[in-house]
Design a protein around this nucleic acid. Structure first.
Ligand SMILES: Nc1ncnc2c1ncn2[C@H]1C[C@H](O)[C@@H](COP(=O)(O)OP(=O)(O)OP(=O)(O)O)O1
Ligand SMILES: [Mg+2]
Ligand SMILES: [Mg+2]
Length: 690
DNA sequence: ATACATACC
DNA sequence: TACTGGTATGTAT
């Protein structure tokens, strides 16, 4: 791909194929001696004029527009803006550099031509011959013999046939691949019991301990591991060893197939390695990003990335800029990842394009059935359904709805999927897909993911301490390799809440949901789907460590402004939380780090209700109210010896305070011990928007 | 929350 | 004749 870099005309000239940028000529393993121009020409000839081709051209045009737009943005930057951004970038580089950890030894292992190798193992007569796993429509992978002809994954079979008439096709057989994958994982496990499988054919292993315990250098461990894998499976693999996961992955590709590359845990070695490395080799930088970085900034290598850090900070989001700067410094994840749970499950099918509605509904029903079966296998229930469509012109559309309840039956899936599809008709389609997400996170009173940390723990010191040490699986530093100074996310009934710890004011905490201002209101409804939660209700939370947190459902004093707007008061022995419907948290924790009420707004917090943005003055007013309120509250509470005080909310005006407290007490008094509903609060991975 | 785009195997 | 399928995540609104 990327032959002309935009210099060749798209519809005329002596070499029109040069403008058709396919991914197939990428420098992937095994493509070294390939006649790239020939591949490009054949692919172009076979594709030219097709609907697929037209769509690719449309996408390319969009990409060029994006490049244009960003180039213009670059031009527009004043010298002052630029130097300002350069300062930001330099500061960020220093901060990122400070997180460099060279104490771990990471190994990335990736099987060679995996599907094809398994097929060859099962049918030795295939050995030595060019082989593709897939069909005339699509190839999943090709062995190295076939790659010499330019045949590779994601290439349609009929084009591969033109490149390599001898090519043998074998249809995919996932049972085989999972079987052999399991065999390889048994081997991986002996080197790192917490190894992270990245796919059927690759994994990340922290071999720090093995190297230390056996007093063996990583090179020997890698050799031994690859030998064992071969003995156990008859399959070859390649390995990369480096101080972090990102670099290990790059390294495993270098000596492919059946080879290994070791990058020592030495800063100079890393910087030398990274400086000449084409950015496209880095996981996460694909065709589009490569183009943008090259055509907008003139960045081809990681070294150039560092030189253009000012521009990067000026034009990209914080998290993206951080990722690029991390890459430029050769940084990457060095921690053992937390238990990862699936976030979505989906099915999709391509068929010969049709606009026949009966036929389309029939396909939809089949998919709903399939999806439901897959969900039952893992006992999954989700509340967001996404319909995916691909028109006969290859244009992709998605339509989603989020339901108030969790679903899993094929009937329910089909019911809502049909509604989504109905609105799109008439349309000629070549693909339909269904996806379910936002899973129910709790089953039988226990958390699906045992590694989740409880909110109680967090505020009572356990997780809180770890957060400061930076060595917990849920700290902000762990995701820090790339995710900048993010805090942690709370999930409440499967919904994400951002939780931010201010770096310079460690006892300040602010949280809000990513999307909906009235998340708590929503969650209350969901949680109480069967028993209808009302204002004044109190609930009990079961946390993983068996602590109980009480939640009271409250209503804002501003409900006339905000509409019905519930909020939850959380209180626990010695610590209290007020969680407002707009996502703010106040914490009061006498026994630990917080010795007084804390409250915080984000500077750029935009307060909006029902889609209407409230003016900053509104926010400021509330801040004043709060200050007043807290002062008064502290005064009143200090002498009082109430065992558990319901805090008021930041929306409560001073004048209303006493009335409010009276109400709270009444709620407490009317507390009904029976029928506590479990709500689970737990920490999850950071979201970028903060 | 939704839609669309990008990336990876 | 024929250009995938499954999952995660980023960007923009
Ligand atoms: N685009 C794709 N579509 C469907 N399946 C794919 C695709 N790419 C890869 N796969 C499947 C088949 C591969 O054998 C398997 C592992 O992928 P990957 O490691 O990238 O390639 P590979 O193992 O076939 O060759 P190698 O690793 O030697 O380059 O995943
Ligand atoms: Mg592989
Ligand atoms: Mg792989």
């Amino acid at each position: 791909m990327d032959v002309g870099g935009g210099s060749a005309p798209s519809d005329s000239g002596p070499r029109p194929w040069q403008s058709y940028n396919t991914v197939y000529t990428n420098a992937k393993a095994g493509m070294e001696g390939v006649d790239k121009e020939k591949v490009q020409r054949v692919v172009y000839e076979m594709s030219k004029g097709s609907k697929y081709f037209e769509n690719e051209e449309r996408k390319e045009a969009e990409m060029r527009q994006k490049v244009e737009r960003m180039s213009a943005q670059c031009e527009k930057l004043s010298a002052a803006e630029l130097s300002q951004n350069q300062m930001v970038a330099d500061k960020r580089v220093l901060e990122l550099e400070a997180t460099r950890d060279l104490t771990k030894v990471w190994l990335h292992v990736d099987m060679d031509a995996f599907y094809a190798a398994v097929e060859t193992l099962c049918d030795p007569s295939l050995r030595g011959k060019p082989l593709a796993v897939g069909s005339m429509s699509m190839i999943s992978t090709a062995n190295y013999e076939a790659r010499r002809f330019g045949v590779r994954a994601a290439m349609p079979g009929f084009i591969a046939c033109k490149l390599c008439p001898e090519l043998i096709f074998v249809p995919p057989d996932f049972k085989k691949y999972t079987h052999y994958s399991d065999l390889t994982r048994k081997v991986f496990q002996t080197y790192d019991p917490n190894f992270m499988a990245a796919s059927l054919d690759e994994a990340y292993l922290d071999i720090t301990a093995v190297c230390r315990e056996r007093n063996t250098i990583s090179e020997e461990i890698a050799k031994e591991l690859r030998n064992t894998v071969f003995e156990e499976t008859g399959l070859t693999c390649s390995a990369g060893v480096a101080p972090n996961q990102l670099l290990a992955k790059v390294c495993s590709d270098i000596k492919k197939p059946n080879g290994q590359f070791i990058l020592p845990n030495d800063r100079t070695a890393v910087m030398t390695f990274i400086s000449s490395l084409p950015i496209r080799k880095i996981g996460g930088i694909g065709k589009v990003t490569e183009h943008i970085l090259r055509d907008v900034f003139g960045i081809n290598t990681c070294e150039e990335m560092l030189q253009k850090s000012g521009y990067i900070c000026a034009l990209f989001s914080r998290s993206t800029a951080d990722f690029f700067l991390s890459v430029a410094l050769g940084l990457g994840k060095t921690d053992t990842p937390e238990v990862r749970m699936r976030k979505s499950i989906s099915n999709e099918r391509t068929f010969s394009a049709t606009a026949d509605e009966t036929l389309l509904y029939q396909k939809l029903a089949e998919l709903a059935e399939l999806l439901s079966t897959d969900m039952q296998r893992e006992d999954l229930h989700g509340c967001t359904l996404t319909l995916k469509l691909k028109t006969s012109a290859f244009e992709v559309r998605t339509r989603a709805i989020t339901l108030k309840r969790y679903i899993c039956s094929s009937n329910d899936i089909l019911k809502y999927a049909s509604k989504l599809l109905k609105d799109e008709l008439p349309v000629s389609l070549r693909l339909i897909g269904l996806r379910i997400s936002h899973f129910k996170t709790e089953r039988l009173g226990t958390l699906a993911d045992p590694s989740q940390k409880s909110l109680t723990n967090f505020f009572l010191g356990d997780a809180s301490k770890k957060l400061k040490d930076g060595n917990s699986s849920c700290t902000d530093t762990e995701d820090h390799s790339f995710a900048s100074d993010m805090g942690t996310v709370i999930f409440l009934e499967g919904r994400e809440m951002n939780l931010h710890e201010f770096g310079d004011q460690p006892d300040r905490i602010d949280a809000r949901d990513c999307y909906q201002r009235n998340l708590f209101c929503e969650n209350t409804e969901i949680t109480n789907a069967s028993s209808s939660c009302r204002i004044g209700d109190e609930l009990q939370v079961d946390t993983p460590n068996s602590r109980k947190i009480d939640l009271a459902v409250d209503q804002s004093e501003y409900s006339d402004l905000l509409g019905t707007h519930s909020m939850l008061h959380v209180f626990d022995d010695g610590s209290h939380l007020d969680m407002a419907g707009d996502g703010h948290i106040m914490s009061h924790n006498e026994g630990n780090t917080c010795s007084k009420w804390q409250f915080s707004w984000l500077d750029d917090y935009k307060c909006s209700v029902c889609g209407v943005e409230l003016p900053p003055s509104f926010v400021e007013e509330r801040q004043e109210h709060l200050d007043f309120h807290l002062a008064e509250k502290l005064q009143r509470e200090e002498p009082a010896n109430q065992p558990r005080v319901h805090s008021s909310t930041q929306r409560t005006t001073p004048r209303q305070l006493s009335a409010r407290r009276g109400k709270s007490k009444k709620h407490k008094a009317s507390h009904n011990d029976g029928g506590h509903l479990p709500i689970h609060l737990f920490f999850g991975k950071m979201n970028q928007n903060f």
